[in-house]
Nucleic acid binder design. Structure first.
Lengths: 230, 230
DNA sequence: TTAGTTTGCGTTAATTATACGCAAATGTAG
DNA sequence: CTACATTTGCGTATAATTAACGCAAACTAA
């Protein structure tokens, strides 16, 4: 075997969003070769003088118009050496959580269509993107229980019932509404706003806000976030 | 900027071992260019037709004579585009835990020397290997608390005091010996052997063994390992 | 007014964690 | 042979946390 290395390096972006009590992921439709159209995760080749994290943020922006400042690295996929049939390509996957209600997406260069796709109706995707997405979902599920990332999926101000619903939906678990509320409130990083939900059914509900500063202070004191389920 | 990509892809191996009540990592000494010698993590370029995980296991074997069957992916380092001064190189880091008392290491191709290095006396390493190692250590610490990986660092049969010591040392925390024992035993995946420790001081201690099968059964039933510290 | 709905606060029992006490089983020093 | 140092292994009391549930308050719609 000759020693020459001809491997391309790509990045892929998994962007999770939450709306209508469901978890979504951002997909693009791409044309491959002459005929085939495939849904895929946003992503593409890293440029020569570009860091990996810059690359994934650039590709996401180019293909979906979504402008993020940070994505977290998920995993690097390079064990299947034929994952791309054209060349050997290794892909570093990144993920992010966004408030989907507050985001303008539009197809741009490279992508023909961009869409939020519900997590339980994902089609067959290009390359090994189904595998990548699965890994991202299990990471999301795990992280949800030990870091307060659920708030990233919600608007600035949200209802307790939204938060509760988010947890139940994503983790596919039942949960006691009252104990959940008690526990989260006991942490002390949520603050009540003076605003009420516009929904006109049942008792009016206060809107809450996640206080990141307070959370960071707690962390410094050794606090450890955790949500457990039966 | 031209579209041509000339990025090499490498793998690096972090192998943790435990002996003499201390945590160690496997390092090699390499010659760079004409004069400089540097300690570094084992690793090297991925071959064209080789999966990432095969590559890291091969490199580790070539450089240290340590033959593993599995390593877990840690992180991919590619944000500092000058991390290797010669070319742009992206490195996928993998780590593993081994029973150091049971391992023959020897310098081989590429490496001049191989050595277990105590984690609190790590020298300045080549490239960004200090950064990589730091990340590996924090991953190890985190994982130790929610997966029963401590046993991988011990011999097949071990003393409870060894296990206790391992946790205290790596996590740098105090722990109540009796509560720790009670908790671990309550999980039911440790089995007593008929053997006793050869140490001739104090009351003779039973040797224990980690029953992976039993652990896997528990996992299937929804069990979740956890060791918390004050 | 009444029924339906969701919020927000509370109480109690069960479980788990924490902080210890102490005897058993050895080797060793005198 | 005895007293002592040392480490193991088991136990118990108390505090803290979690889980299970009750119910009134505050609104809308009819």
């Amino acid at each position: 075997m000759k020693n020459f290395q001809n491997i391309r390096i790509a990045v892929d972006a998994i962007v999770f969003g939450y709306k209508n009590n469901s978890l979504y992921v951002l997909l693009i439709e791409q044309q491959f070769g002459s005929a085939d159209k495939y849904w895929a995760l946003p992503g593409g080749l890293v440029k020569q003088d570009e860091s990996l994290s810059d690359a994934v943020i650039r590709e996401l922006h180019e293909e979906t118009n979504v402008q993020l400042t940070f994505m977290e690295q998920l995993y690097t996929f390079g064990d299947d050496i034929y994952r791309d049939s054209r060349n050997r390509v290794i892909s570093v996957a990144y993920y992010a959580l966004v408030d989907a209600s507050n985001l303008e997406i539009k197809a741009d260069t490279d992508a023909e269509r961009v869409q939020w796709c519900k997590i339980d109706t994902i089609p067959i995707l290009a390359f090994d993107h189904n595998l990548i997405l699965e890994k991202a979902i299990s990471r999301l599920k795990a992280k949800l229980t030990y870091e307060p990332i659920g708030f990233d999926l919600l608007p600035e101000e949200f209802l307790f019932s939204d938060l509760e619903n988010l947890y139940c939906t994503i983790l596919e678990k039942e949960i006691d509404r009252r104990n959940f509320r008690k526990k989260i409130l006991s942490y002390g990083f949520l603050e009540e706003t003076d605003n009420f939900s516009p929904i006109k059914t049942g008792r009016p509900a206060k809107l809450f806000r996640f206080n990141k500063l307070k959370y960071n202070e707690l962390i410094k004191k050794g606090f450890h976030f955790e949500i457990k389920f039966a």
